[in-house]
């Protein structure tokens, strides 16, 4: 469904992404794991159209989207819950969700998806009229994921959804990612919590300083001694 080929990203003089290629098949969860600064977030941001790609192609459903503006990529069917959640603190929960649906104009579909998001995250429903900034960290993460779902994406990209959450909430977040996937959304997941990510992923890539050093199914990588040593604590 999504095929990234030979992607390169430079920040000034720094070569942050060095010719990586990633394949995300329809209906699957694919995860990128790696240490800080490995280029995981940059990869997602490049796909979303937020950072300039020096070269490489991004094919989505057979269509080249590498040159599209961020808002057109959303229209094409890729949304993202960015790192650090980045919800709008001065807008209400409902307004945040409506922003996620900005590129759509099918009022009925939007109303249906609001109900669906509230079903996934009942706590958001209780807080519909609250300002985003008053939510707890976990609730903000749910809002960020819900907001990305409101764009009616075929592919949803999640950047560090478990970052800074209590262990119980981390479990909940990964449960929800599985639910979303079961309901038909393809997921591209970036995580530092490698163990949890590999457990739910169908395929995984390991990034190190801008290059892919390993790839395979989630289970394969979970058993891989190199991965165990570097990312899973032995």
């Amino acid at each position: 469904m999504l095929r990234i080929s030979d992607l390169n990203v430079h920040y000034g003089g720094i070569h942050a992404i060095k010719g990586i290629s990633i394949e995300v098949p329809r209906g699957k969860i694919v995860t990128l794991i790696g240490a800080n600064g490995a280029g995981k977030s940059s990869t997602l941001r490049a796909v979303a159209g937020l950072v300039h790609k020096s070269s490489g192609s991004v094919l989505f459903d057979g269509r080249e989207i590498g040159k599209l503006a961020a808002e057109d990529i959303v229209k094409a069917g890729i949304t993202m819950a960015p790192e650090g959640r980045r919800i709008f603190p001065h807008l209400t929960v409902l307004e945040n969700l409506m922003l996620g649906a900005y590129s759509r104009s099918d009022q009925k579909g939007i109303a249906r998806d609001i109900d669906w998001v509230y079903e996934l995250f009942p706590r958001l429903k209780e807080r519909t009229w609250q300002k985003g900034g008053t939510l707890s960290g976990g609730e903000q993460q749910m809002l960020a994921v819900g907001r990305a779902l409101m764009g009616s994406p075929k592919l949803i990209m999640l950047d560090e959804p478990s970052l800074g959450l209590a262990p119980l909430l981390v479990k909940e977040v990964f449960g929800i990612i599985k639910t979303i996937n079961d309901e038909g959304k393809t997921v591209l997941l970036v995580e530092q919590n490698a163990y949890a990510a590999l457990k739910i992923a169908h395929a995984a890539y390991v990034l190190e300083v801008g290059s892919i050093v390993l790839s395979g199914t989630g289970e394969e990588l979970l058993r891989n001694p190199k991965v165990r040593e570097a990312y899973l604590g032995g």
Binding site: E71, P82, P89, L91, E95, M98, L99
Partner: peptide
């Protein structure tokens, strides 16, 4: 209105507004 919502979003965070599909 919808453009108004876009304005209020952009005023706080342009990049995330782009991610939401707001034509900045």
């Amino acid at each position: 209105t919808k453009p108004g919502l876009g304005m209020r979003a952009i005023s706080k965070d342009i990049e995330t507004s782009r991610l939401m599909g707001v034509p900045v």
